[in-house]
Amino acid sequence: MARRRAVATVLTMAAALTLSVACGTTSENSGQNQQAGGPSEKCEGPDGEYTIGMSQANRAEPYRERMDDDIRAAAEDVPQFTVEFADAQQDNAKQVSDVENFLTRQIDVLIISPNEATPLTSVVAKAYNRGIPVIVLDRKVDGDAYTTWIGADNVEIGRTAGEYVAKTLLPNGGKVGELRGLAGSTPAKERGDGFRQGIEGSGVEIVASADGDWLRDKGQSQADAMFKANPDIQVVYSHNDPMAEGAYLAAKAAGKEKSMKFIGIDGLPIPSGGLKAVEQGRLSATLIYPTAGKEAVEAAEKILIDCAEVPKEQTLDTQLITADNAATVYNEANS
């Protein structure tokens, strides 16, 4: 008897859901208005008020947290902007839902730092096709259903690092150990390839290469093993700063931190970031991988307030940080 009642309740619930779906206000399914490049229909000029939806892939990474912070800081200077943040916690499906929630809330511009390209392509396209300007940061999505992409060129960053090693650190040639990012990830491949281009033709040679998965502790243990097998390594090239710091610790444990050089990438202007590490002498150099947070807000300003067009792609320059400029850059970034 009781069970039958349960079924009835479920059915009622289901009916209620269906009904509310059916009667629910149908949102603008008119959809397919491809933005051909002209000014966005969302643009109401300086008198409008705009909500930015910022969908972050994973706020647990310091780089991405800094990206959110940069966006927040930049948006505070624009009185017409309010920003809503969502964190997908490294889950593609969650990021899809986050974007969908933003659409339901009828945001005016979407900024997204995708967890992965393909899984987010369709939801980004859905937003774009509804006439919402989409600013993609760092990782791209497939196709071209977005307004603008802002990011840095990892190959270029790798090449700059390689050239710095070949020209400055080891002008007479020498041996380099490489700590790579997570196997199979695009940045790891690009930063590795770029570096090889940078040292090409010089006497610099990569004698060992290991996966540190972007992690400081993994970088440390890998470097430890690497130094034992190749005691003659002079420079460690690490795909990010935390792994470079790990390598420094491994060298210190072996008593050779003074005779070796360490290079990282990212150069985050935070107390635990690469800028400070260079300033304090642990790392010889780092290359700034810009978060593009400030640039994203600037792009939003152009689209919504100036009703102007923005370029489809915007590649940000990297900057080589050494002990000479580390402190200055840090202070500028946090002013």
Partner: peptide, 8 residues
């Protein structure tokens, strides 16, 4: 109660 939202 937006239909899109319930769909989601």
């Amino acid at each position: 109660l937006n239909s899109d939202n319930l769909f989601n």
